[in-house]
Amino acid sequence: MILTGSEIEKNVLSGRIIISPFSAEQLNPNSYNYRLGDAYIELDDVYPYDLEEPDAIPDKKRFDESGTILHPGKLYLSSTAETIGSEEFVTSLIGKSSMGRLGLFLQLSADLGHQGEIHKWTLELAPCIPIKVYPHMKIGQVTFWKVSGERMHSKGYYKNYDAPTISRGLAT
């Protein structure tokens, strides 16, 4: 079952969902609009990546207050501006239709968050058309889902990171 906006708000107030900072204006009927962070990584297209291996750590850049153009055919990693997560509910991050209509893939078919991971989530941005984005703009929506069964603890690696984080590969 998916939580309604008012359930999201109730659970934020009782501490069972973390959205920080939280603004009730960003609630939707059954999701919450999260904002884009201010740092990003532009992945280089200079060599074949290896799914197994960790990637070299590229420089972080900052989104320009007057807008930064993202280019099609490139992959950018950024993060949510908010710390988001829950020990009790499963978090799922997806795009907003207003951004989808501009041809921006947000998350590359990776929507499912691990229960218990509470941090600023790394976002993958893959534009189909050049698109200008701004730091702290509302860029996606997060949903929360009820879980059946006893909770299992996360062994996730990326939960420890609040900044845009590159892949460490599958080797480890």
Binding site: L43, Y49, L51, D55, L108, S109, A110, S167
Partner: peptide
């Protein structure tokens, strides 16, 4: 339901095309 893994998505690889 099918989902990507974050370590795969962060290398720019889609594993399904909006068919989850």
């Amino acid at each position: 339901m099918l989902h990507n893994r974050s370590g795969v998505a962060r290398k720019g690889l889609f594993i399904h095309i909006t068919a989850d």
